[in-house]
């Protein structure tokens, strides 16, 4: 074999190794029987997986993360669905600007968003930690909601709304009767994407978390600074499999990849 024909397989192997490798290491480490986070694992046990469920701060931060992921995504959809509708159905002046502004949280680094929110909103206005986190997560998920819902709206003919109106429905009624049922798949996909994005969010949450109120990833970092045992690896593995499970189910039942 010459160098040329080796190039593609070798590149492919390296890419996969870099993507999957760390994940495999963490999974292996979480079954370790040793006292410290190490690879290769020393022996095999489920004790660190069991320990995850006994750490109290994990329970509280998991509940907080879950609340933010569900609540923030729901709020982003409540704002995002009408926004997407307006962007896709009406020729609004400045629609492109709105689209860009709404997408900004995807492009701007989270650390900047977090710092900005902390410095100019949270501190001067004395906003509560939970509220600040909730607003931040809503803003972070909004671009995904708008993008995914817009895509499914663009695939839906707008004349069915006129047809519904001519059959006696109001404009708003037509939206709920014939638009919503036909973009349900897009909304579900946006929800899942938003949920995963919010749940895995670190930099913004890092800035906004405060005493007693933390999201799970922030809590894991804090835990590792004090205790260097494999329970964080165990928790990471559990979360990774949860995410994979959700996305797999979504693809299976909703055709997720059509919308994203």
């Amino acid at each position: 074999m010459n160098a040329r024909s080796l190039f593609i397989p070798v590149t492919l192997f390296l890419v996969i190794a870099f993507l999957i490798g760390p994940f495999l290491i963490i999974v292996a480490a979480s079954f370790s029987a040793g006292e410290t986070l190490a690879f290769p694992p020393q022996g095999f046990s489920l004790r660190w997986i069991a320990k995850v469920f006994t750490v109290e701060s994990f329970q509280a931060s998991f509940a907080m993360s879950l609340f933010l992921a569900i609540g923030g995504t729901a709020a982003a959809l409540v704002l995002g669905i009408p926004a997407s509708y307006a962007l896709s159905r009406y020729k609004l002046p400045g629609a492109e600007i709105v689209r860009t502004v709404v997408s900004a949280p995807i492009i701007v680094p989270g650390i900047i968003v977090g710092l900005a929110l902390l410095r100019y909103i949270v501190v001067p206005f004395q906003v509560g930690i939970t509220l600040a986190l909730f607003v931040a997560h809503t803003a972070l998920v909004l671009p995904y909601a708008v993008r995914v819902v817009s895509a499914s709206l663009d695939n839906l003919r707008s004349d069915i709304e006129e047809a519904a109106v001519l059959l006696g429905s109001s404009r708003l009624g037509a939206f709920f009767r014939v638009v919503m049922p036909n973009i349900r798949g897009g909304i579900m996909s946006a929800f899942i994407l938003g949920f995963v994005t919010s749940f895995n969010q670190v930099p913004v949450s890092l800035f906004l978390s405060g005493p007693g109120v933390r999201t799970l990833p922030v809590d894991m970092i804090a835990y590792m600074e004090i205790v260097f045992d494999p329970s964080v690896a165990a928790l990471s593995s559990l979360l990774a499999f949860l995410s994979i499970g959700i996305v797999f189910a979504a693809e299976r039942f909703l055709g997720f990849s059509r919308y994203v």
Binding site: R157, I160, E162, A164, V165, L166, L167, G168, S170
Partner: peptide
Amino acid sequence: NKRAVGLVFQSYALF
């Protein structure tokens, strides 16, 4: 929606 006028769209516009 209050006119009692029907319209068959070119694209049919079925739900």
